[in-house]
Simulated scan of single mutants.
Amino acid sequence: MEKIILASNSPRRKEILGKFNIHLRIEKSSVDEKVNEGDIPEQVAMALAFQKTLDVAERCDDGGIVIGADTIVVKDHHILGKPANYDEAFNTLKKLSGTYHHVITGVAIIKANTYKKVVFYEKTKVKIKDLSDDDICNYINTNEVWDKAGSYGIQGIGSALVESIEGDYFNVVGLPIARLSSILRKDFNIKLI
C-alpha cells in the first residue's frame, strides 16, 4: 500500500484522514502563508495548498503521495484569515453574523519523486446565525477561535453559530474528503474505501 503523507499539522485534517485504513504520516510544511489583497480566493487556496504540498514532497526521498490543503473564509470577496488577537476575532465574527460567506479549501496531491500532481478546490456556502455581542464574546472566550480561518470552528463549539451550509461539511472542517477520495482513486489508484 502506498503511503500517504499529510503536509499539514492540522489536527482536523489528521483526524479526517486517520479514519481510513491507510499508512498515514504527518510532515509539517514550512511554507509561510502569504495572501495579497485583491488575489482571487480560489487561486489563493490552491496556490497555498500546492506550495505546502511541494515543500513536503521535495523532502520525501522515499516516495509516497503527499496531500496538502489550505482553507480560507471569504466574505464579500475579502479573505478573512486567522485572528491575531481578540479584536480581530470579534470584528470577523461581527461581519459574519446573520450573513452568508464561503469556505474554500484548496487541495494539492503530489506523487513524490514524479511530476504527477492534481490541484483543485472545493467551495461551501455557510450562513452564521444572528449573533449578539455577548454571543461573540462568549464564543471567543472558549478559545476555539485561534488558528481558525474566519474565527470559528464548525466541528466544535462553533457549530452552535452556524445556521446552515450548502455543500460539503468536511470542506468547512478543512478537507473535502469525498472529492479527495474520488481523485485519489481516479488519478493515483488509491482507494480510501
Rank of each mutant, 00 (worst) to 15 (best):
L175Y: 09
L48G: 08
A178P: 00
D168P: 00
V44S: 02
K186L: 06
Q155G: 02
K34I: 15
G63T: 08
F170S: 14
P11Q: 04
M1A: 03
A108H: 08
G174A: 14
V172F: 15
Y169W: 13
A47T: 00
F50D: 08
Q51R: 13
I79E: 02
D130A: 12
K123V: 06
D168F: 10
G98K: 13
L192F: 12
I16Y: 10
I4L: 06
D133L: 01
D134K: 08
F20V: 05
A84Y: 10
K191I: 08
A84Q: 14
T105N: 09
D70S: 06
N141A: 11
R13T: 00
Y152L: 03
I16R: 09
Y169K: 10
K116M: 14
S132W: 05
K186C: 04
D87L: 11
A160W: 00
I4W: 06
G64P: 00
K52A: 13
A7N: 09
T142W: 11
G18W: 05
K148A: 13
K75C: 10
F170R: 13
L6R: 01
A49M: 02
D62M: 01
V107L: 02
L161S: 01
V74F: 10
G158Y: 07
N21G: 13
A7Q: 09
T114L: 08
D70V: 03
D70F: 06
A149M: 13
D135W: 00
G106V: 05
K125T: 05
I177Y: 09
E15A: 10
D32E: 14
I79M: 07
I183Y: 01
K52P: 09
Y86K: 05
Y121R: 10
A112P: 00
F170Q: 15
G68K: 06
S151D: 12
G38E: 01
S164P: 00
L180R: 11
A49P: 00
P176E: 07
N36S: 06
R25I: 07
Y115V: 14
C60P: 01
I79G: 03
R185M: 02
V162W: 03
Q155Y: 06
D187E: 14
G18T: 04
G18N: 08
D187F: 11
I183T: 03
S30Y: 15
Y115M: 15
P11D: 05
L48F: 08
I5C: 04
T99V: 10
I26F: 14
S151M: 11
D135M: 01
S164E: 12
N21E: 11
D87Q: 15
I67K: 01
D32F: 05
T105A: 14
H23A: 08
K186G: 04
L24Y: 10
K75R: 12
K129L: 15
I4E: 04
W146A: 04
L96H: 06
S159H: 01
I136T: 03
L48D: 10
I109W: 05
T114M: 09
F170C: 13
P41D: 14
I193V: 04
R12S: 05
K52R: 09
A112Y: 01
D32V: 02
S182V: 02
I109E: 02
F170T: 13
R59C: 06
E166Q: 07
L6W: 00
G38I: 03
E166D: 10
D39Y: 01
L180E: 09
V173P: 07
G156I: 09
I4K: 04
K191T: 07
T105C: 14
D32P: 08
T71Q: 13
V66P: 00
N36M: 07
